[in-house]
Structure formats: C-alpha cells, structure tokens
C-alpha cells in the first residue's frame, strides 16, 4: 500500500484492550482482550452483532469514551501509546491524524451550524487556515465527496441535506486534515440500500487515493468483505476470529463466523465468496 509510516512500523496496534464502563461489574467488560493491528493504508473490518463492543473499541482509540470508563491494555498509534495519554496530547491527534465517521449521519452534524462552519473547524484548528482558505478547502472537499454546487452548500444547514449527503459531509470533514487513520463506525447502516453502496465506494476510493488506513465497523460481513484486507469478528466484547478476508471467508474457524457467513450467503443467494475479494 502507498503511505508507509516512519520506520515502516504499524499504523495502529491494539493489544489486549479492555474497557469497563462505570456502574458495571468487571466481568461485564464491554470490550475484553481485544487485539488487532493495521498497516498504513490498510483496511481492517470490524464485524459483530449489536452490543458486541465495536463502537466502544473505536471510541477507546480516540479517547472519546464516556467519562469514568476504565481502559486497560495498549493502543499504539504510529508508535505512540494512546492508553493513558492525557487529553491535551490526544486532542491534536483527533481530527488531524485520526478521523471519525460516526454511525448515525442524521445526527452526526450539529443542526444549528452551517455545513461550512462545521467543515472549517478542523481546518482552522489543525492546519491554521484563515477563514477564506478554509472555505476554499471546504469547497474542494465537498466536491471530492460528490456534492453538487459545493460553494452554495457551505451556507446550508444539515436539515437541508439527505442522509447520504450528510454522511458525505461527515466523511469530508473526517478526511479534511489528511489523517493517516480513518475510523468509520457503521457509516452506512442508517442509509438507504442504494445510497449505502455509493458511500462505501466513496470511502474505499478516498482511502485508497489518499493512502489512509481505514478501520471500518459493520454488523454486515458483506460490507466488510468488499472493502477490507483483514477482518476481526467480535462477539460479547472479544475478538473471536481475526485474519485476512480471504482466510476468514474461506476457512472460518469460529462457529459464530460460520453463522454470520451463512446469513450473508442466504441473503445474497450466492456461493461462498459472495462479495469476497478475488
């Protein structure tokens, strides 16, 4: 893949991650013993049923978990240990080196701020752009994610956009400062089926073009199959299966993965490598 981190090291390495939310018993940890790694520019799919801890793992990486959540284990991003890193050291990474696309596009944009104002924020904060420069860059970004008449759209409010357009804006915002890692938490779940494919294609194109590592979360194996290099299957807070897409789809080791695959095949009425990479 394109971009290579200094020293050729891993982009992201999560080792033995464990998250316990306040008010829950330690044995009910939302995430426990989770490990995976990504190389620069690589795409990793995180799959699992609702409540399996996918979002929790993603937010732990960005240090955005609810107050009081106990995080143990290790998360290294380009060689920097993120677990225990103080807020003031994490903040410069958020939105700059790590972008987030969140699961519910209808609610991911602030309803009372214009699209332009929301796009300008990270540009001015991280890249020190003037308002004018940020506007120019915002127009480029909107154009890049496939929004028509981008200049006029800067003054629009989120409620004037469809779900698919909003998710495109969120994606534009997430990649605006050229991150090396993009975390997309169920980016298409809330969208119409026809729009889902377009948004996935956009994500795939963008990350490939810009050499961004993509951590994509889904409860749908077929979504991940088309995009990812590697897959981690989560259940009850743990990773039950981890390997290359090919490996996991051809020789699923865990019965849960086999069940997931069976569902995909049933839905698509296709043989084994439905949606899988050649």
């Amino acid at each position: 893949m394109s971009a290579v981190a200094p020293g050729g090291e891993e982009l992201l390495a999560v080792r033995d991650l464990r998250v316990v939310f306040p008010g829950t018993r330690p044995e009910d940890a939302a995430v426990t013993g989770v490990s995976f790694a990504m190389n620069p520019g690589q795409t990793l799919g995180l799959v699992g049923e609702s409540g399996s801890g996918k979002s929790t793992a993603c937010l732990a990486i960005m240090g955005l978990l609810a107050r009081g959540a106990t995080v143990t284990g290790s998360i290294t991003f380009r060689g920097t240990e993120l677990v225990g890193l103080p807020e003031r050291r994490l903040r410069p990474l958020r939105g700059k080196d790590i972008g987030l696309v969140y699961q519910d596009p209808m609610a991911a944009l602030n309803p009372v701020k214009t699209i332009g104002a929301q796009l300008r924020e990270p540009l001015r904060l991280h890249l020190g752009m003037s308002r004018k420069q940020a506007d120019e860059r915002a127009v480029e970004l909107l154009d890049r994610v496939g929004i028509d008449a981008p200049r006029d759209k800067l003054r629009s409010f989120p409620h004037e956009f469809s779900g698919g357009m909003r998710q495109r804006v969120v994606i534009a915002m997430a990649v605006s400062c050229n991150p090396t890692l993009l975390i997309a938490d169920e980016p298409t779940t809330a969208l119409d089926v026809s729009v889902q494919a377009q948004v996935l294609e956009l994500l795939s194109d963008l990350t490939t073009d810009l050499g961004i590592g993509l951590l994509i979360v889904s409860h749908d194996l077929s979504v991940v199959a088309g995009l990812a290099d590697d897959v981690a299957v989560m259940r009850h807070g743990s990773v039950v299966e981890y390997g290359s897409v090919h490996q996991v789809f051809q020789r699923p080791a865990h019965p849960y993965t086999r069940d997931l695959l069976a569902v995909v095949r049933e839905l698509e009425g296709d043989p084994v490598d439905a949606g899988g990479r050649p």
């Binding site: 700059k96 602030n110 924020e121 997430a174």
Partner: peptide, 20 residues
C-alpha cells in the same frame, strides 16, 4: 452524536460547549 463528532475533530471541551 454531533457532540461526539465535534470532539472527534479535536475541539477542546470549552469550544465544544460554547460553539456546539
């Protein structure tokens, strides 16, 4: 979610409070 997204952009908690 938009507050989470604002924080994910790297805004400080003060900025999140005031401008979001």
């Amino acid at each position: 979610p938009y507050i989470l997204v604002a924080r994910a952009k790297g805004l400080s908690s003060g900025r999140v409070l005031v401008s979001h």
